[in-house]
Design a protein around this nucleic acid. Structure first.
Lengths: 186, 186, 186, 186
DNA sequence: GATGAATGAGTCTTCATTCAT
DNA sequence: AATGAATGAAGACTCATTCAT
């Protein structure tokens, strides 16, 4: 899979990356209703260029999600490797801390008119995958009560995504409440 | 012009109520992107009629929120009157259970492109108001740890909006995790 | 079928008719590439109005064809009623004479990117229908040789559509050549 | 700039020929609306290469027509040399038989949005030229009635473009009807 | 010379809102 | 008051053409 298609020209790759980045920030900050033309403008390219790389607004959106989920999953693997027993807690805390930038995406994920499975099939599975790995590891380590499953944790994740709107320090405290709720009975 | 609030004609009142109801269901089920024409159609009126009662889509949306928040706040007051110590927990459980139907609204509350303060100023204040009453009551009763505040609880509320997607029983377990996290150390 | 749907409002009917007429003239004169906005402008309405009556450019085009074919078929029936033996010849002559206005349509019909069966299913069948009636009548009357069929005549029809570009009188002579070719051996 | 017509590099000439051929087939099969990018793709070159040889879509189209008309005219000259009395009839028959492949072109010749005189001035004159030579020869030989002129024959030519749609054998019979119409009274 | 990425004007279509009936 | 037709400003997307590589 390394090279069935020749590597993209340098300028094209730069543009593609720039568009993806701008789209991420823009969707995150202003929601999915932002016109493609606006994203193009902010990326410093013509609308046609956006369409060359992402033939549909939907596709652009999927690419943004995939990109984002990929990096989240990567981080989860690092945490897991570092300390299986606390990875899940730490992950939850980090999600809370970095949630701000992901808002538009999270809402979109939760929202209507966007089918995540359709938008990024691999992405959701991968995300659920690590999450369950982290959960299982924590339960083996005895740090998380045994009666919770992946779906519960996933649902709790979404809380993290909403905390930054409430002022400094709230996010951390919310994370601790959830972590406490998950903790094995003392 | 003689009276600012001449009582609305009976059929007009009925239309207003019908539109509000349909708008609630529709926004909840399909999000804010649904055209006004579609809401009019489902309500069995012409688009002009929608605009007579709600001069703007934005205004219609605010009305939907206010209506919804009002009934949530009412319910909270009932729970508070019945048992101050458990009202918050019970309220959280109910929110989780009924979240499914409120998705559109919940997203909107959490969402971008909609400024809730602007959309329904009184509504948000009233909501935060009861929530803090419930929290204070619970803390007085010793059922909730003293180091959480209204904002944390509000943030936790938003989790409700995502739980219905994960299958039967998940919602309840999520509610219990949160409740456990909030509970005073035993 | 007279009134499952209530009769269209007078102004709406007028607009619909005006758009159809303008679309006919415009497609005929300038081809299918003309923007809808242009047709709207010439009809003195907004583009939205065109789309209210014809939800797609394709649909507008179909409507134009159907309308045109309907009147052609009507005329054929009149000729047939008046004199079965000469109806076909007369019809051919009239087609030649009025061809100018139909050019764009004829080309479109003959052209690519337009599937007549799809565009106006009933229309083509109706047209072929009368044409074969006229042909059969003429053959019964002995004015047309017996070894030609509907398809040949239909093909010949298209010649008629192309004659107006060659100057005065040409059209008539072309019609006569075809009529002579069709005539029973003398 | 030293020479206005330096001989084209071999690969360039090959590209030019390939593009012209593909453009001919594509326009013929799918009409003028096909994007240049598509033609480039089918010809196995980049769009830039198409533009190097044909600075405009219009120019490419003209080149296609000219190329096509040139070969038609050549064929007519052969027929004329072989038998002046029957050349026109034979030519008509061949046009009918080969019309299928020429549709896009025929439409274009007949069509709107394309001014053939402008598109390929020499081409049309040359075509009319041989046609009138064939006609005159036939009339001198007494095989064609004397009251027809070039324009009538040209108009009749256009029938060719429509015959292939009607099934096997129709084209031949249509050609015979026209030939009979043109024939001197026996 | 060839390539294919970028451009951006132009097209179809939707939908919030206004207004004649 | 209600209706639903009309409006027109956007927005998604296409494609002829130019230009950097």
């Amino acid at each position: 899979m390394t090279s069935t298609t020749r590597p993209m020209r340098a300028d094209a790759a730069r543009n593609r990356a720039k568009v993806l980045e701008v789209a991420y920030e823009t969707f995150a900050a202003e929601g999915l209703a932002v016109p493609i033309d606006e994203i193009a403008r902010r990326a410093g390219v013509g609308p046609g260029t956006v369409y060359r790389h992402f033939p549909t607004k939907e596709v652009l959106f999927q690419a943004v999600i995939e990109d984002r989920v990929r990096s989240i999953v990567e981080r989860a693997h690092q945490l897991l490797a570092a300390d299986p027993g606390t990875a899940l807690f730490e992950f939850l805390r980090e999600m809370v801390r970095t949630a701000a930038a992901d808002h538009g995406i999270a809402d979109a994920l939760a929202g209507y008119g966007v089918d995540l499975d359709a938008a990024a099939p691999g992405a959701e599975a991968a995300f659920l995958g690590v999450m369950e790995e982290m959960l299982a590891a924590a339960q083996r380590a005895g740090t998380v009560r045994p009666d919770v499953g992946g779906p519960e944790v996933k649902a709790l994740m979404t809380v993290c995504k909403s905390t930054d709107r409430y002022g400094d320090g709230i996010a951390e405290r919310v994370a601790e409440i959830i972590v406490d709720g998950l903790r094995s009975a003392r």
